[in-house]
């Protein structure tokens, strides 16, 4: 029995070290996303649904940002001092020498591993702004619903639709 538990604990530790740990960020994005999805579907209050939706969207942004991370990299802003003080140009193996850009004079060839990947950041700037735009429209629609139904609870709204107990415009 004790052996069994030991083996089990060993397995779990092994799993965490080899599977979860290298992907911890990705796992936690999945967890956050599922919390958001749960709120989105299970909550009956419309504002709660929207908070769930926002959590869902930020989880996706977390995923994108995580995939652009490089362990020893700095932020994607060109660093004059660091680049000037570098002794030798970094040449990528796969790259032909004639398309090396302007490596003469002011600064040397940039080491791409020195900076975080800027592309996911750009994409996520867009996604954040899209998220807040959607949130704004959804809140406006929620207020409009409140104007007509006097409530923001989904089950009460459905009930009122069934009984016809809401403000009807002509």
């Amino acid at each position: 029995m004790v052996d069994f538990i030991e083996i089990f604990v060993e397995r779990v530790v092994h799993f965490i070290e080899n599977v979860v740990q290298p992907h911890f960020n990705y796992w936690s994005y999945v967890v956050l996303m599922m919390i958001g999805l749960w709120g989105l579907i299970a909550k009956r209050n419309l504002i709660k649904k929207l908070i769930g939706l926002s959590i869902f969207q930020t989880a996706i942004i977390l995923f994108y940002v995580s995939l652009g991370v490089k362990a020893d990299a700095t932020i994607p802003v060109f660093d004059y001092e660091a680049e000037k003080s570098k002794s030798a140009a970094v040449v990528l193996p796969a790259e032909p020498s004639e398309m090396g850009g302007k490596s003469d004079g002011k600064y040397k060839k940039i080491d791409p591993d020195h900076y975080a990947n800027p592309l996911p950041h750009v994409l996520m700037l867009t996604a954040i702004v899209v998220g807040v735009a959607t949130l704004g429209v959804a809140l406006a629609v929620a207020q409009s619903i409140f104007k007509d139904f006097g409530t923001l609870e989904e089950h009460e709204i459905l009930e009122k639709i069934k009984t016809g107990d809401y403000v009807k415009h002509d």
């Binding site: 939706l53 995939l67 959607t134 629609v141 619903i145 403000v167 415009h169």
Partner: peptide, 30 residues
């Protein structure tokens, strides 16, 4: 129509979830 607003709210939720799934898929591909 007030029912239209309720439908629009559902549409916002579903539409955003759909677009988010698409975005996530593109992320996996990237």
């Amino acid at each position: 129509s007030p029912r239209g607003t309720v439908a629009a709210f559902n549409y916002i939720i579903m539409g955003t979830v759909g677009a988010s799934f698409y975005l996530l898929g593109v992320g996996y591909l990237y």
